[in-house]
Design a protein around this nucleic acid. Sequence first.
DNA 1: ATAATATATCGACGAACGTCGATATATTGA
DNA 2: TCAATATATCGACGTTCGTCGATATATTAT
Lengths: 128, 128
Amino acid sequence: MSTTVAINAREETALVSAGDTNSPCCVPAHGQEALEAAAAEALAARFKALADPNRLRILSIVSSSPEAETCVCDLSEPLGLGQPTVSHHLKIMVEAGLLNREKRGVWAYYSLVPGALDSLAATLAPKA
Amino acid sequence: MSTTVAINAREETALVSAGDTNSPCCVPAHGQEALEAAAAEALAARFKALADPNRLRILSIVSSSPEAETCVCDLSEPLGLGQPTVSHHLKIMVEAGLLNREKRGVWAYYSLVPGALDSLAATLAPKA
DNA sequence: ATAATATATCGACGAACGTCGATATATTGA
DNA sequence: TCAATATATCGACGTTCGTCGATATATTAT
């Protein structure tokens, strides 16, 4: 059964298979469906969280901070963005499962969800 | 000089460093700038190409095809998209450096650019 | 030359996105 | 209790995106 395109990395569907399949041109091998629509939607949602330069910079800053956590006040200035905008980006990444949010006192500290980026990377390069 | 956030994987900037840095909260260590704006823009552009469910399905189909190449006619039907839309998605991924386009006769064959996905994956998980 | 076919490009339209200023909520200190 | 501060949420805006139908381009066969 190696004709299925799904290869699991942390119980999620991989983008590329190790793959050999057989189908002549213009006679698509219907029945395996490649990446399921629902799985594609879920994966795309996570990549969408990475598809903005400011969010990538936020991830970079958060990951390189002392305790690998950052409060909003540290982000607004270096990014040149307003505080509401930064909060908005953070929320998107929390909802995408990339960042954790911990509120201590008046501050909100954000940190990388361990393994989140790795699991996304595994989706792109199943073996490496 | 391990304070720089940049770690190169295939001559491009990684998202997360192996990183330790020193900066007390709310006293951002300006001067290292985390991910440069330009680099972030470039990286985001590539993730943007992955941030659509139909494009992910196209990648999946292309990568699991006989010779790992596919013509447009094979994509339109299984995706349930019009031909112009498929062409549009393919163009985006070619411009993002993810797909190759080779025209043979009337057909256009698309294939994965070797290493493109891996290099993107390396950006997310520098070591693994 | 003409017809048929595969693909690309164009123009339009609605939906989603990034950003902002204004405001609401919550916590701390006087 | 009241003021100050950090963050979240809201509403609005211009821009970008995904999709489509119509059309243009190119290649092959008649």
